[in-house]
Write a protein that binds this DNA or RNA. Sequence first.
DNA 1: GATGAATGAGCTTTCATTCAT
DNA 2: AATGAATGAAAGCTCATTCAT
Lengths: 191, 191, 191, 191
Amino acid sequence: MTEPLDRRRTILDAALACFLEQGYRATSMAHIRQKSGASTGSIYHFFSGKGAIAEALLREAIAGWAGLALAPDQSVEEQIKTSVGGLVLWGLANPAQAQLLDELRGLAGHDPELESVRDFLSFGQDAAAAAFAHMQSTGAVRKIPFGIAHALMLGPAYAYLRNAPATRPDEAKRIADLFAGAAWQAVRAGD
Amino acid sequence: MTEPLDRRRTILDAALACFLEQGYRATSMAHIRQKSGASTGSIYHFFSGKGAIAEALLREAIAGWAGLALAPDQSVEEQIKTSVGGLVLWGLANPAQAQLLDELRGLAGHDPELESVRDFLSFGQDAAAAAFAHMQSTGAVRKIPFGIAHALMLGPAYAYLRNAPATRPDEAKRIADLFAGAAWQAVRAGD
Amino acid sequence: MTEPLDRRRTILDAALACFLEQGYRATSMAHIRQKSGASTGSIYHFFSGKGAIAEALLREAIAGWAGLALAPDQSVEEQIKTSVGGLVLWGLANPAQAQLLDELRGLAGHDPELESVRDFLSFGQDAAAAAFAHMQSTGAVRKIPFGIAHALMLGPAYAYLRNAPATRPDEAKRIADLFAGAAWQAVRAGD
Amino acid sequence: MTEPLDRRRTILDAALACFLEQGYRATSMAHIRQKSGASTGSIYHFFSGKGAIAEALLREAIAGWAGLALAPDQSVEEQIKTSVGGLVLWGLANPAQAQLLDELRGLAGHDPELESVRDFLSFGQDAAAAAFAHMQSTGAVRKIPFGIAHALMLGPAYAYLRNAPATRPDEAKRIADLFAGAAWQAVRAGD
DNA sequence: GATGAATGAGCTTTCATTCAT
DNA sequence: AATGAATGAAAGCTCATTCAT
């Protein structure tokens, strides 16, 4: 079997490679076509456009990073630290995907072809906001608007990952703990 | 003289208006031409391209925000709080410019036509790194790499300003203090 | 049996709906596929292409309108009035189909994929020409080329139906009589 | 001067040639580009799109045909005969342009890129309607809706020109008179 | 009878930039 | 200083049709 079983998979892989190499904007459908070996029509048979490919990749990338809200038996402190630390660990282990995520987050605000990406990301935000509201109701975290809390917790991680140098796994663990600790300090209920 | 004295000014104003309305990427030279009333040739007489217009606007925007390193007679705590708080105050008072700054920061990493913007921004980073190194040498702040410290201090502000709601001046002050305080807590020398 | 007996019928109905909604040119095979629920392959199993679907629909539409030459025991005046009046009545009662007929008549002249439609329509013309030649041989109508006579008789009806407003049945009868009378006046043997 | 003075003119001429040869729909911007020798950008510098080129050509074509309402000192009968006969004479003398007019009239109803053509044509209709209303107020023509009168007067001419055979000038005069006479008979005030 | 993946030429349009005047 | 005509590569996307299963 020289022919790949799943053409859709081939296209996604090629697109991811292109996006990581040159960025989303600089990647044209022609690039993806050449890299994947699929025809133009085949690509559009599976995806409605460039934005839809990005969205599919983003869903996969984020599925690879555990997600903000999970493990309900953890303490609030552990939940937050796990979320933030997990993001940093994932980002340092997958720097290219993290940069893609960052680029798409930036572009989604302005680019109509990334509307579905915008919706997808804001959906994640809503879930996080709900989880945080619950934490506030137990008195575990500061009574501040979610927008501010979110910025305090994840802003440093996003900012760091944007320009992070290559990092060895053991270092990555220490850095992740550092950001996780800072996030907790920033939002824990005041003394 | 019905003709404005400074054509260059007219072009910059028109470009800023376009960038704020539609974003940098979605703004074409034709848009700027129409909004400014200047001819294509005139625009290229003053600016070498779209990236150069963006850079000029960015320099003006950043000049409007005091800058990281200043007032050498302040304490380290005051310096950091002033820097971070000042960024937040400026961003809440000039939300459109703050969004432009954010968009350009994101694009500069990938877009060749924004190379000079990238250089300009990284120059600011270098100055900030030097100032932080000095603070570390006095023992006032944690001994962590500048990249991490920078992310801890300014990451939350950048993240918040990206999606910040419209804010009244008195509220803005409180929010700025909140981010300034958090930045100081995150990097002050450990207890 | 949830599946309809006649897939061909389903496809024709869907295609007609599409053509009426958006016009023939703007309707893609994909539209027909979606509206009909049939697969691409199924459509091509029954029809050799988009033009063939149009032709099939046109045959049905025209079958619904009695046709030019009929009822040989009528007087020439009645034959002509019946033909023209019948066209107008049919067109006002089926405005959407009439518009489709008009669109296809216009396109068939230029579009290679509508060659069979062109042939079909010109076949009708030939029959009408023969009938008219017979009328001329009896001295009942003017000795003018059929092309001119045809334009005089049916031109007004086609022109009116193209933009006709919605019409109540009783009004339609009066309008049809008006066009029928004018057609007869235009081609009857001169006084 | 080998270089044409007016690039816009060159483009229009090339476009007209293409439209007449292959029809509007079958003509691509690439065809116009090749035939005119102008670059893509140059074409779009002068025209906002294919529809705008068609509109410009249509305005010229119609300007070449005197127009419905003119010479106010003519009798109503002369006005109508001049209009209809003039259309036929023009159409037989310029069969290609007449076919283009016909094609565009047909397409303008459905094609969004011909919206301006539709507006232009309906504007002409409005003027004709006003002129006809005036004729009705003097009692010279039948009291029938303008839509019907318009179809009676011009429908035959349009229908004939669509398929008209090549015609010698002297024959054209006779045919034009025939259609003009029929138009007048169809709408003159009843005896 | 039926499916839908695959094709690829072709489409209109955008755009930053150059340069003769 | 200023003009605007001219450039042409590149973009995202459509679509009728084919064919192996």
